[in-house]
């Protein structure tokens, strides 16, 4: 266990940036998002939810999967072998860290997505424990401890004036060694302070819902009239899906000029009409009702059914805060039978 005074973080970041491309939460205009570290640009370590979740570093909104030349002869070039420069993410919250393990279930299952795997392998996550949940946080619902981030390589806990850092993986340990010059040894007092912060973090939830038994209950809810009511407010934008740390659906598109081109993978959203629209005109999800149902059923029933009971939600609250019409997963969990206590 090591530590550093918060006043000396610039020094830490300078060292980290020598180890790889360093990204951390930065405010630009009105928005806090992960951005490449720049000397003298202050990081925002208070805001819990960045605008976009860090999934964008593993699964970018746009990435070339294949390059081709189609003049005389067709030549295909695998673009995934270029993915995965050495990257360090600083300040990833526990919910977003947990979301990556859900993403892994999709992209690291056979057949493994090579670009994703390479990025995962070449990225070091320095998680930052939360001190106090926001009103829209409900990570606890999914057994995520806001003071811990087991999937991270390093865990930093803000004890007030210092960050106390613990290595949680081999990659994390290696990085700690490289940072020896700027870090101090933590004391037993720090250890106690870390425990206190962690314990306190889990106590401030305003939003308490339970998903116990929800996946099973939803097995029989596909035809429920509930969906007829729920969807009407939806304006079919992609805010919820694009801001979601576990949404992973994509489209493949061609970008070409002359005799060369690229096949590009880009985020897509089940909220959009053309998501399931087939060339012949048939659309198995013809109205917004089916699309809204698909999104929530995917998160709360299909995904758990495919992946050992785990829900495709980490309770980060981005959709709760950002949906223009306040139609979010919290509402569905509450109304479809998740037990409620608290507010």
């Amino acid at each position: 266990m090591k530590k550093i005074a918060k006043t000396k973080l610039q020094e830490l970041w300078r060292c980290l940036s020598a180890e790889g491309a360093l990204y951390l939460p930065v405010r630009s205009d009105s928005v806090v998002d992960f951005a490449l570290w720049q000397e003298d640009v202050p990081a925002d370590l208070e805001t819990l939810n960045t605008f976009l979740p860090p999934k964008k570093f593993y699964y970018p909104q746009t990435e070339t999967v294949l390059k081709y030349e189609f003049g005389e002869n067709l030549q295909l070039l695998d673009a995934s072998s270029q993915a995965g420069e050495k990257t360090i993410l600083f300040g990833v919250r526990p919910c977003d860290t947990a979301a990556l393990s859900l993403m892994d279930k999709v992209y690291l299952s056979e057949p493994v997505d090579e670009a994703y795997r390479r990025r995962r392998e070449n990225t070091v996550i320095i998680a930052l424990g939360c001190r106090e949940p926001e009103e829209t946080c409900f990570c606890q619902t999914f057994d995520i401890d806001p003071g811990k981030a087991p999937g991270a390589d390093l865990l930093a806990i803000d004890t007030g004036t210092e960050l106390v850092v613990t290595a949680q993986s081999l990659k994390g340990e290696e990085l700690l060694v490289a940072l020896n010059g700027v870090l101090q040894e933590a004391t037993s007092g720090d250890e106690i302070r870390v425990k206190d912060v962690q314990e306190q973090a889990g106590e401030g939830y305003l939003t308490r819902v339970s998903v116990h038994g929800l996946a099973e209950k939803l097995d029989t809810c596909f035809a429920s009239p509930y969906w007829d009511r729920l969807y009407r407010r939806c304006i079919a934008c992609g805010t919820c899906t694009y801001l979601c740390p576990t949404c992973h659906c994509f489209d493949l598109q061609e970008y070409a000029a002359g005799h060369s081109g690229e096949r590009v993978r880009c985020w897509d959203a089940c909220m959009f009409t053309d998501f399931t629209q087939m060339a012949g005109g048939h659309n198995p999800r013809p109205t917004q009702k089916e699309r809204v149902r698909q999104r929530f059923m995917h998160k709360l029933n299909y995904f758990p059914r495919q992946h050992g009971g785990e829900y495709a939600c980490v309770g980060c609250g981005r959709c709760v805060r950002q949906c223009p019409v306040n139609l979010d997963i919290l509402e569905v969990i509450r109304e479809m039978g998740g037990a409620v206590d608290g507010q």
Binding site: S28, A236, C237, G238, Y242, L243, W267, A269
Partner: peptide, 16 residues
């Protein structure tokens, strides 16, 4: 450019 660079094309602006 900085403003539009953040656009994720969710189309909320248009749809609303």
């Amino acid at each position: 450019a900085r403003q539009f660079d953040r656009c994720i094309r969710c189309f909320a602006c248009r749809n609303t």
